[in-house]
Each structure stands twice: as structure tokens, then as C-alpha cells.
Amino acid sequence: MELTLNNGVTMPALGLGVFQSPPEQTTVAVEAALATGYRHIDTAAAYGNERQVGEGIHNSGLDRAEVFIETKVWVSDYGYDQTLHAWDKAAGKLGVDYLDLFILHQPAPDRFEKTIAAYKALETLLGDGRVRAIGVSNFMPHHLKQLLESTDVIPAVNQVELHPYFTQPDVQAADAGHGILTQAWSPIGGITFYPGWGEDRKNVMADATIGAIGQKHSKTPAQVMLRWHLQQGRSAIPKSTNPARIAENFDVFDFELSADELAGLDALHTGRRSGPDPDEAREERFAMVIPEA
């Protein structure tokens, strides 16, 4: 299943995410995903596993053009020249001479002038043909408004936390209003399994409504949630290093959720995010040094 971005580039709707995938497990996970049929891999400089993603793609034997590679610039590399160099680092680690989608990892609202400069570097990379599409991640509607007032190219993608317990309707509406594709990280609520942010989080995978829908279709809760994203026109990038789970997450193209089932999933929205607040200033993020290629 392909989605067409606002610049005409097509992208597989379902991709493999590698957030928190240890480098030593990432190569094999990418190989397993590509063998299963995935053709879209999402990584980031801050994940520390771009090199292993590149190795997995290389080991697959697939032509470079067959795999849609998406990665992200970390905030410590924001700024015009710094972000141009961030492309050098990412492409070098991945072992490629172009990226399919290059996005800013955070809005960094406390230093938004650097964010704008970084995005202008993405525009240059797009114009040079070193990337095929550019975008952002974790941008709320007010961040998008600020960005669009100072730049020329509308982002192709906005990657945000999005699962049945946190559907971000305002973000989805703002993205749609500008022709920006909403891409879900934590698409099956996996962030609720991780320590670090928030308290009293509920496991989305154990939700009774999702479980009942899954039983009706002989599908797992994860498969139901991924199908919900796809039918509503979003991209989703579930993360796993388990080959069986990677294959399970890709087995979502042989069933259809009804309008009532989609509405039932929408109704689970709690308004509470599980990941970090994009408006929160976190000085320590700027201390992370992204290694050279």
C-alpha cells in the first residue's frame, strides 16, 4: 500500500521503526522486515543505529531504489550548515547517496530560529536532489504555523505520537489542512511499555474494545491498530526486533475494519500523551553529539 506525498513522491504506508532497537539487533531486524515485504525503514540520528539499518538494507540484496529510507536530524545538529552536515553523517552511515525522507526530529521551540535554519537546509537538500522529500516530527499546529511563515516548502510528513489512546485530532486536522501526511510513531501504543514519561499509563494492547475487534477478524490487537491507521490514510512505523512480530505487523492487508469499528477505535482517545511534550524545553537534548560517519 503506497501513499502519495504532497510533492508526488510515493511512500509505502507501513514501515519498520527502529526506535530503541539496539544496534546489535537492528541489522537482523531490518533484514527480516525486508524479507517479509516491508519496503520502508524509519530511523534517526539519535537512535544510534543508522549504520546497522544501512547494513540490513545492503544485506537484503535489494536495489537501493526499492527501499524507502527515512531518517531524522537531531536537535544538536540544527542550524543551516550543521543540518547540511547532518545529511553527510546520515548518508555516510546508511551507505547511500540520497535519502527518501529527511525530517527534523523535534520542534525545539526554545530555539526555534535554529529549527527554521535547519529546515531551510532541508529545502536546499531537496533542491539538490540529495533528498526526495522533507518533513518534521513532533510538530504541533502552532509549530507548523511558525515554520510555514518562514520557509517555502510545505513539509511532506509530520511524524507524531498517535495510537487509539492518543489520536491528536488537532494535529491531524492541521496536517490535512496543509496537505501534510500524518505518520504515527508508537502506532500500536508501544511507548506505554517504556519507562520514562508519564504515570499510570494503560497498555493499549490490552484494551477490551481492540481485543473484541481483533477476535471478530481473527487478528491481534496490534494488527487491528495498524489497520486503523492505514484505513484512515496515515503512515505507521511499528517497531520490533522479533522476526515473528515483524511479520505479524505486516499481515494487515487482508481484512477491513467497518466504519463502526473505526469510530470505536477513535472513541478510545484519552487526550493524554505517553511520550514527551514537544513544547517542553529540555536543554540536555542539545548536548547529544551525533558521531561522524
Rank of each mutant, 00 (worst) to 15 (best):
Q172Y: 11
T167H: 13
A173Y: 01
P164N: 12
D175I: 12
L181N: 07
D175A: 13
L147P: 03
V171F: 09
L147A: 10
I188F: 01
A176F: 07
G196Y: 15
L144R: 05
P155T: 04
S186Q: 02
L147H: 07
P155A: 04
Q183P: 10
W197L: 10
F166L: 11
H143S: 06
Q183A: 13
H163A: 05
H163Q: 10
I180Y: 08
L162A: 02
V157P: 01
T151F: 07
I191Q: 12
I188S: 03
V157R: 09
Q146W: 13
P187K: 13
A173F: 03
F166P: 10
I188A: 06
T167W: 08
A174L: 07
N158M: 05
P187N: 08
H178A: 05
F166M: 06
G196D: 14
W197D: 13
I180Q: 01
G179W: 06
T182A: 06
G190M: 04
I154S: 09
W185G: 09
D175W: 01
W185L: 02
E161A: 01
L144S: 03
A184T: 08
P195F: 06
Y194M: 14
I180T: 04
G190I: 02
G196I: 10
P195G: 03
W197A: 15
A156Y: 02
D152V: 15
A156N: 14
G189A: 02
Q183N: 10
S186A: 12
L148T: 06
T167Y: 15
L162I: 05
L147R: 00
G179A: 08
E161D: 03
A176P: 08
A176W: 00
Y165V: 09
A174G: 02
G189T: 01
S186T: 07
S186W: 03
